[in-house]
């Protein structure tokens, strides 16, 4: 269970952030020590702060992750395996990758207690939001020592 601040960012926001880094420009928010949650939430219904908000598949962000790790990003939340290159980089930069349960989006949104827009409102569902979460359900997949929970699964015992 995670509690604290996470930033949302998925495909489009990653492309923008990495472009800024390439050009040597300042990022719209400080990544140092922060966690990015790969999600494009559903819109909030009246009286709610956010709609359903489960993880999207992480591998699409793999080619765009290392520049963010270099800027101090210390964790990501998504679903599915990371590439060997990213796993190595996470060990090097001491970052953790968590999986949340894909499709458990209504349930996960219950753990989000505050929402504000941090960058790129023009991206609609892909805008970067700053979320405050309390008891957000997530599982550590890659720790800073190079372990990988997907790789550790015992396929043989399920045959």
């Amino acid at each position: 269970m995670l509690s604290g601040i996470v930033y949302t960012a998925r495909d489009a926001a990653h492309m923008k952030l990495v472009n800024l880094i390439k050009k040597g420009q300042t990022l719209p928010f400080d990544l140092s020590g922060q966690i990015i949650y790969y999600v494009g939430p559903a819109p909030a219904k009246p009286g709610e702060i956010i709609g359903s908000a489960g993880p999207t598949t992480s591998y699409r962000m793999d080619p765009l992750t290392i520049p963010l790790l270099k800027k101090g990003l210390s964790g990501t939340i998504g679903k599915g395996k990371r590439s060997p290159k990213i796993r190595k980089a996470m060990k090097e930069y001491k970052a953790v990758y968590f999986a949340a349960v894909g499709g458990a989006a209504a349930l996960i949104s219950e753990s989000i207690t505050r929402v504000s827009t941090a960058a790129y409102p023009e991206l609609g569902p892909e805008a970067v939001k700053k979320l405050e979460v309390k008891d957000f359900p997530a599982i550590v997949v890659n720790d800073i020592y190079g372990n990988d929970l997907y790789e550790m699964r015992k396929e043989e015992q399920y045959k």
């Binding site: 939430p41 359903s52 489960g54 894909g102 458990a104 989006a105 209504a106 349930l107």
Partner: peptide, 19 residues
């Protein structure tokens, strides 16, 4: 979690998945 999720979504009339 998936069962709790679909029950909650149905009750609150919110999407089962954000996608």
């Amino acid at each position: 979690q998936l069962i709790d999720n679909y029950q909650l979504a149905e009750k609150k009339k919110v999407p089962i998945c954000q996608d």
